[in-house]
Design a protein around this nucleic acid. Structure first.
Lengths: 203, 203
DNA sequence: TTACTTTTGCTAACAGTGTTAACAAAAGTA
DNA sequence: TACTTTTGTTAACACTGTTAGCAAAAGTAA
């Protein structure tokens, strides 16, 4: 008798329909406004049934996080296979990473814990400009002293800030605790590379 | 008569006490669990009085965001002043940036919209390891082909990922919209620098 | 088919959240 | 003292995630 099998199948379908409804919510209004109630509403069931399939709301989001990382892995692998020289592979993967992030923005934000209050208003903060101008002026000075004074300082500023922010936030995601002095080598490494790149023509 | 002045002063003090209470909440439980009700409780006033001084909860958080950026700007400026060569300034500023982020974690998370569900569980995601291993293997291959096969591949992987994530998330914060193809030059620039740094000894 | 067990889904509630309308009390002004 | 403005309160609205308790449906065994 296939009753047990059918039940498992139905359960799986139900679970999938929850995720489907949840995902519709996420892509239409962002994951911050996802709510159990809206999911229940969309699948036309009462609220508690969702808890028969997922421990809590976080478990639903975790599902998407996993899916996102797998999608990213697949993308990277596919792109990597199209090249043979490692340096070209790294380059192609970088572009694929970038494309993935913006083509699947909701996934990416979920995966890396991004997206918060007032993110759209951050550009209007005067204090931000103070910090920005200090960095830019230094970059400018460094470029002026280099062999390539025609370098785009604004581009280099973005690179500089991105490296710093990337290092910090990756570190914050992975470690709950403190700075971890040894990890500062990564910072030193990245900044050294950046400074070198100012004094050299990029290939 | 100094009545008006006193009133303004008292208003200012009240406002400050709200921020003070809010900040205590933030540093003890993280900004995600900050609530108007808890603030009201801490200052021993009813809830609506807070809305006499701040338009909404977001306005309170924005206050801290501003404060954070100003703190960062001051820190960078102070560190910069201790050096004369721009390259050294950039280096020192990078370290100061790092220290700031971890010494004022709550500020930093607020400033860059970090901190979300399941951030501590992200390391246990199997799918993450899939994506990781693809990148690491490529980095390894690139190092093997370089003039410095003794390079720490794990360090380089972190640098690579940090650059990518930094670029993406900075871009996501600043722009609501789409990829912006021209901005991809920043990516190309950063990755080129990274690849160069694999083939060179860091100064 | 009947009697029993398990699964499934429901209503209703608890404990929170941000926000606001309506009103009372205090403070300042004439 | 009478009036106006500011300030603060209670109580509610409209949401959140989550769960206890119960009814109905589905499956099982006689």
């Amino acid at each position: 008798m296939g009753i047990a099998e059918r039940k498992i199948r139905q359960r799986e379908e139900f679970r999938a329909s929850i995720l489907e409804a949840a995902w519709q919510q996420v892509i239409s209004d962002g994951w911050q406004s996802l709510s159990i109630r809206k999911i229940a509403d969309a699948i036309e069931y009462s609220i508690p049934v969702i808890y028969n399939h997922f421990e809590n709301k976080e478990a639903i989001l975790l599902e998407f996080t996993k899916e996102g990382f797998q999608k990213l892995a697949d993308t990277l692998e596919g792109v990597k296979a199209q090249h043979t020289v490692p340096a070209r592979q790294l380059e192609a993967m970088a572009h694929a990473y970038w494309d993935f992030a913006f083509d699947h923005k909701e996934f990416y934000q979920l995966m890396f814990g991004l997206g918060i209050p007032a993110c759209d208003r951050v550009n209007e903060i005067e204090e931000l400009k103070n910090a920005t101008s200090i960095m830019i002026s230094t970059i400018k000075a460094a470029i002026d002293e280099s062999n390539h004074p025609e370098t785009d300082y604004f581009l280099k500023y973005h690179t500089y800030l991105s490296i710093l922010h990337g290092l910090v936030s990756i570190q914050m995601i992975q470690k709950e605790g403190k700075p971890d002095a040894a990890k500062k080598m990564i910072l030193q490494d990245a900044i050294s590379g950046f400074i070198i790149s100012i004094n050299r023509i990029n290939s």
